[in-house]
C-alpha cells in the first residue's frame, strides 16, 4: 500500500474510528516530474491536470528536470521522499529514466508515463494516440482526394513519434496504394521536424514530378507550413495538405483553404485524463480495470502496457468553431486574411 495513505489513515483513526475507506481522494498526493516545463505546451497540460485533481480534492506536487537526466532522477527521489501516492512522469529520456521508475515501483508507488512512453512492464501509459494522428491525416486527405499522386513529408527520422504517425498514415493509404487509386510519387523525412527542411524537400519533389501532385501528407503543422510555402511558389496552393498540433498558423491556413486538416490535441484534456488515471491508481484500482484502459504494445520493444489513449480531434474547414469555442484560438487570429469561401466559424 501507499505509505502516505497508510499514515494518514492511522492519523485519521486516532481522531475518528469512523474513517474506514482505504483512501479518500482528499488524502491523495500526486507527483508530476516534468522533463522540461519551459516548453509552452506543458503549462496547458498542467492546467488540465490541476483542474482534474482539485475537483477531487487531491494535491499536486511538481518538479521540473529542465532537460537533464540527472535532475529528473533526483526530482523523482524527492517526490518519493515527499510521499506521493502516484507518480506521473514526462520522461526526458525514456531509457535513462528506468532506474528511477524501478525505485518508485519498488516502493509501491504506481507510475504513469505521461505523453512520452516509458517502455517498462507495470508502467501505465497516458497519451494522445500517435497512430490515430496519422489515421486522421490520411483519412481526411483521402476524403478530399480519393485518387491521385500523393507525397509524404514525414517527421524526424530519429523520433519514435514520427514513426507512429507514419504507421497510422500507412494503415489508411496502403490498401488504396495496393488497388491503384493512390500512387506515392515522393517521400522524405524532415530532419528535426524543421519547416525549412520540409520546404526544400517539397520544392525538389515538385521539380522531380513536374508539379504532378494531388495531395501532401505532411506529418505536423510545422512541416505543413513548409509544404504550403513550396506549393504557393508554383501556384499549387489549395491542394489537400495534412498536419497536426492545431498551431495558430495552421488553423489560419485551414480557414484560408491552403491546408485540409490538423489533428488537434487539446493538452487540457490529456491533463484531465492523467488526473483521472492517477486518482484511480492511487485508490488501488487495478490498471486493467480503469475505464477505457487498453493494452499498448506498439513500441519499439513491443512491451505490453496498460494505457489510456486519447484520440486527437479532427479539425477541418467545417468544424473550426470547435477550436474557437475551446478558447484555443481567437476568431481574429483564425480568420486573418480570410475573404472568400469563409468557414462558418468566421461568420
Amino acid at each position: 500500500m501507499k505509505r502516505r495513505s497508510v499514515m494518514s489513515l492511522l492519523a485519521g483513526l486516532s481522531l475518528s474510528a469512523l474513517m474506514t475507506a482505504p483512501a479518500l481522494a482528499a488524502d491523495i498526493t500526486v507527483g508530476m516530474s516534468w522533463a522540461n516545463y519551459q516548453e509552452e505546451r506543458w503549462k496547458i497540460d498542467e492546467s488540465g491536470l490541476r483542474a482534474g485533481l482539485e475537483e477531487a480534492g487531491a494535491e499536486l506536487v511538481t518538479a521540473d528536470a529542465q532537460s537533464s537526466n540527472e535532475r529528473q532522477a533526483s526530482d523523482i527521489d524527492g517526490l518519493l521522499a515527499r510521499g506521493v501516492d502516484v507518480l506521473l512522469i514526462v520522461a526526458w529520456d525514456s531509457e535513462a529514466i528506468i532506474p528511477s521508475v524501478e525505485r518508485a515501483l519498488a516502493e509501491g508507488v504506481p507510475v504513469i508515463a505521461y505523453e512520452r512512453q516509458i517502455e517498462y512492464p507495470g508502467v501505465y501509459y497516458v497519451a494522445f494516440d500517435p497512430v490515430e494522428v496519422g489515421r486522421i491525416q490520411a483519412r481526411e486527405l483521402v476524403r478530399a482526394q480519393p485518387k491521385g499522386d500523393y507525397v509524404i513529408i514525414k517527421g524526424s527520422p530519429t523520433d519514435q513519434y514520427a514513426h507512429y504517425v507514419l504507421t497510422g498514415q500507412k494503415e489508411i493509404i496502403d490498401p488504396l496504394i495496393a488497388n491503384g487509386d493512390i500512387t506515392i510519387v515522393g517521400e522524405q523525412w524532415t530532419d528535426g521536424w524543421v519547416p525549412d527542411n520540409a520546404q526544400k524537400n517539397m520544392e525538389n519533389i515538385l521539380t522531380a514530378v513536374n508539379d504532378k501532385v494531388d495531395a501532401v501528407l505532411a506529418s505536423n503543422d510545422g512541416t505543413a507550413g513548409g509544404v504550403v510555402a513550396a506549393l504557393t511558389s508554383v501556384g499549387l496552393e489549395g491542394i489537400p495538405v495534412s498536419g497536426q498540433d492545431g498551431d495558430i498558423a495552421a488553423l489560419n491556413r485551414i480557414a484560408l483553404g491552403t491546408q485540409t486538416v490538423t489533428a488537434w490535441k487539446d493538452a487540457r484534456e490529456l491533463g484531465r485524463l492523467g488526473a483521472k488515471v492517477a486518482l484511480e491508481l492511487a485508490k488501488g484500482t487495478a490498471p486493467e480495470d480503469i475505464e477505457g484502459s487498453v493494452v499498448w504494445d506498439k513500441g519499439p520493444k513491443g512491451t505490453a502496457q496498460n494505457a489510456s489513449v486519447l484520440a486527437p480531434v479532427t479539425i477541418t474547414h467545417e468544424n473550426l468553431d470547435v477550436v474557437v469555442d475551446a478558447d484555443w484560438i481567437s476568431k481574429e487570429d483564425l480568420c486573418a486574411g480570410v475573404t472568400e469561401n469563409a468557414p462558418a466559424a468566421c461568420n
Binding site: D191, G192, W193, V194, P195, D196, Q199, G222, G225, G226, A229, T232, A249
Partner: peptide, 12 residues
C-alpha cells in the same frame, strides 16, 4: 521564404 517565424528555423 517560409512566410512564418518558427523557433526551430535555422537549426543545424
Amino acid at each position: 521564404r517560409l512566410n512564418a517565424g518558427t523557433s526551430s528555423t535555422g537549426e543545424l
